[in-house]
Design a protein around this nucleic acid. Sequence first.
DNA 1: CTTGCACTGTACCGACCGGTCAACTAGTGT
DNA 2: ACACTAGTTGACCGGTCGGTACAGTGCAAG
Lengths: 217, 217
Amino acid sequence: MTSPPAPTPTHRARGDSRDALLTAARELIVGRSYSAVGIAEICAHAGVRKGSLYHFFPGKEALTLAMLDALYADFEREVLIPGLAGANGLHARIEAFVHAIHAFEARMQAESGQLPGCPFGNLAVEMGTHNPTLRRAIRGHLDAVTAHFRSVLDEAVQDGELPGDTNTEALAEQWLALMEGILVMAKADQDPATVLRLGPALVTLLTHSPPEVPHER
Amino acid sequence: MTSPPAPTPTHRARGDSRDALLTAARELIVGRSYSAVGIAEICAHAGVRKGSLYHFFPGKEALTLAMLDALYADFEREVLIPGLAGANGLHARIEAFVHAIHAFEARMQAESGQLPGCPFGNLAVEMGTHNPTLRRAIRGHLDAVTAHFRSVLDEAVQDGELPGDTNTEALAEQWLALMEGILVMAKADQDPATVLRLGPALVTLLTHSPPEVPHER
DNA sequence: CTTGCACTGTACCGACCGGTCAACTAGTGT
DNA sequence: ACACTAGTTGACCGGTCGGTACAGTGCAAG
């Protein structure tokens, strides 16, 4: 423990260039988009030269992939878990979640002047048609979000707030779809109030889950 | 009628270059995205030289604006009106609309190999944060779609299918948001079946409109 | 002290971006 | 026959894109 405070075998001259690149890529790509942000701008924002970027990552796509992993981890820890587990009852949890998203969008707009919408949904739309690697990675993160939604719904079923035969898997996916749509609209408006205005739709969708018509086949 | 079939006063040597440019821009930009398609590619696809493009349009943005106007007009005539007015009853109309959207996405994927999602939603997401002109134009088209949804809901209220105090304006906006979200998910999946899988959420949302809780204030 | 190696800095690449320009072509009105 | 002009053409512009090549640079182990 008296040795220098570097647990890793590398020397790491000064500040971690890799982390700086990931942070810069996150701020810029989330604030704008994948194709609107160039390698040069990411490097400048991170205070790192291009050669270092290509030492740590094979290219822009790999950097973005790593950035998305870190972004999802933070989103899960800072928004998903506290926003969903904080309140009691399904209705209250939905409202808490909507307000957490609203707060995030409003803060981003205050900081950068732009309302970004959902970073994962944005990338899914942007790269869905011409970058299968990124598309699949994003799809995986969206699935992880759906799993969190589902556990909330399962709890609501156990507490008797939803019918026992509720298809929580399907409903969780619908929840995510509506959330993504709300954020598309908010981005089109560039107004965080749109999140609050459309939020009640989530309550309608989630508390009236199976349309009384049994699934005809 | 023995004169050449050109009713307009201009000479128009051969095929309309302007229309060819609009068609090419539509096919390419809808199939991929604004920034992924270049001027050169649009011109090549239209069989027109770059100089002609800049004769008819001041630039890429103006071309896209005109393309979006034509695209919305066609969408309204070919999908929105027949898809919504074809059936009787709200439930049937929703299902007909979902199937119309599914058919469009499946056809696009069969033709171009890519499932595009909603062209307007895509552009809203792509340009929302850094092209206010395009953003506002798209927002206008989305409003026009909402107006169509609302008239369907108003009819349902008049027919007694929805409560008389239904806020059809708010509900129409929620309808659009959910539809956009469904198309984001379908694009992330690159699978038109996602439209059908999530379609029932529209029925839930639209036939249970105001959560029985009166709007607390 | 010397060697090895992770990391950095800079110059450079070909391709492509949106956009400009002047010269040309071909119908139209007089 | 003439001039006018809408439309067309292809060469060209500066700038930026993602990515590459390679010579340093400084730390750590031998």
